[in-house]
Nucleic acid binder design. Structure first.
Length: 207
DNA sequence: CTCTGGATTGAC
DNA sequence: TCAATCCAGAGG
């Protein structure tokens, strides 16, 4: 018999067509699920960041052209310019994978970085992938999250509305539980308030 | 081809 | 506070 989590229906493409700064907070409380040969793992999204297609030099979709920042498709960022509801996975700092959800219309380079999860299912699998029993350290941070969920290069470009890696409806989040602040770990556009997290969640990444 | 720096993490 | 570690992007 299937668990409720496995039976949960993925969010439709239309969800990801809302403006990216709207999608990012609305992803809080949703369930990220990954079925692999090792088993199923899932977590509640508790922290996200929006990356935009204009006026956002921190976004991978914009590259410097002289004095200007312009949209440019490259070998790394191409999924950001593809259809909404797909995964954009990239490697950073020589060790970590980061998982993004592509938003906005096909051809527009925007995405939401998923920075932290509250483990919800397949916790033993997540523990073994991470090499720790500490629940708080399983998926609180973009690199930890991808390691715990088994997300890497194989998932780059994956359709999150069908298949083994999905985002499903979760608990409803009251507006007052959503905190909006500045993004983590960037130098450019560091003042833009495009980070969102669940107030009082112990699973939000530190800082 | 070479060089630079990064949407991080974990150990010190 | 800082090194690890590798690759994308840029420039020659």
């Amino acid at each position: 018999m299937e668990s409720e989590i496995q039976a949960a229906h993925p969010l439709p493409v239309s969800f990801y067509l809302q403006p990216t700064p709207v999608v990012a907070p609305r992803l809080l409380g949703k369930l990220l699920c990954h079925r692999t040969p090792e088993g199923m793992a899932a977590g509640i999204i508790v922290e996200t960041e929006a990356y935009l297609s204009g006026e956002d030099p921190a976004s991978h979709s914009l590259l410097r052209k002289g004095e200007q920042w312009r949209p440019k498709i490259t070998d790394r960022n191409w999924p950001m310019f593809g259809p909404p509801g797909r995964a954009y996975v990239y490697f950073v700092y020589g060790r970590n994978w980061c998982f993004n959800i592509v938003t906005g219309p096909d051809g527009v380079g925007e995405a939401v970085l998923v920075r932290a999860l509250e483990p919800a299912a397949g916790i033993e699998l997540m523990k073994s992938r991470r090499g720790t029993d500490n629940l708080r350290l399983l998926a609180s941070g973009p690199g930890r999250l991808t390691q715990a969920m088994g997300i890497g290069a194989e998932q780059n470009g994956a359709d999150l509305t069908t298949g083994d890696l999905t985002v499903a409806e979760g608990e409803q989040i009251p507006e007052q539980r959503v905190v909006q602040t500045t993004r983590v770990g960037i130098k450019l556009a560091a003042d833009l308030p495009l980070r969102f997290y669940l107030k009082d969640s112990p699973f939000v990444s530190r800082r």
